[in-house]
Simulated assay, not measured.
Amino acid sequence: MKIRVSLWLTICLFLMMVLAGVASSCVGYFMGSEALKVVTQPDINTEDNNRNQDPAGGEYKGLKIMKEKDILVKVYNRVNHKN
């Protein structure tokens, strides 16, 4: 019994959809795991006054906090073309 061409095309389309789903899930998993590497658990003891603790994972590679005054000065200078 011969299998029709439309059945072969349906099987190929189904396999391509499954492979695309697997590839998408792998990319999402690896991107999510990289994004969560710098996330640390908050301190359990809130009475501890040591706020300058290093993250548990080692050197902090994520967001650098800037002072609001520095940002406003840069914006003002850029708007008014001052150096």
Rank of each mutant, 00 (worst) to 15 (best):
K2A: 08
K2P: 05
I3K: 00
R4C: 11
R4T: 07
R4M: 05
V5H: 10
S6L: 04
S6R: 15
W8T: 12
W8A: 13
L9H: 02
L9Q: 10
L9I: 09
T10A: 12
T10L: 13
I11W: 12
C12A: 12
F14R: 04
L15P: 00
L15F: 09
L15H: 06
M16Y: 07
M16I: 13
V18C: 05
V18T: 02
A20W: 09
A20M: 07
G21H: 04
A23L: 12
A23I: 00
S25T: 11
C26G: 01
C26P: 01
V27I: 13
V27Y: 00
V27W: 04
V27A: 14
Y29E: 05
M31E: 03
G32I: 11
G32C: 15
G32P: 01
E34C: 12
E34S: 14
E34Q: 14
A35H: 15
A35M: 15
L36S: 14
K37N: 11
K37Q: 09
V38S: 06
Q41K: 13
Q41S: 00
P42R: 00
P42Q: 00
P42E: 04
N45Q: 01
E47L: 00
E47F: 08
E47R: 07
N49P: 01
N50M: 10
R51V: 01
N52H: 00
Q53I: 01
Q53K: 08
Q53L: 08
D54L: 04
D54A: 04
D54K: 12
P55C: 04
P55G: 08
A56D: 09
A56S: 08
A56L: 06
A56I: 11
G57H: 04
G58H: 01
E59G: 07
E59S: 07
E59F: 00
Y60C: 07
G62C: 11
G62N: 09
L63V: 13
L63S: 13
L63G: 08
K64M: 05
K64D: 03
I65V: 12
K67P: 00
K69P: 04
K69G: 09
K69V: 12
D70Q: 05
D70S: 10
I71R: 06
L72F: 13
L72H: 07
L72M: 15
L72W: 15
V73I: 14
V75G: 10
V75Y: 04
R78G: 09
R78W: 10
V79T: 09
H81T: 11
K82L: 15
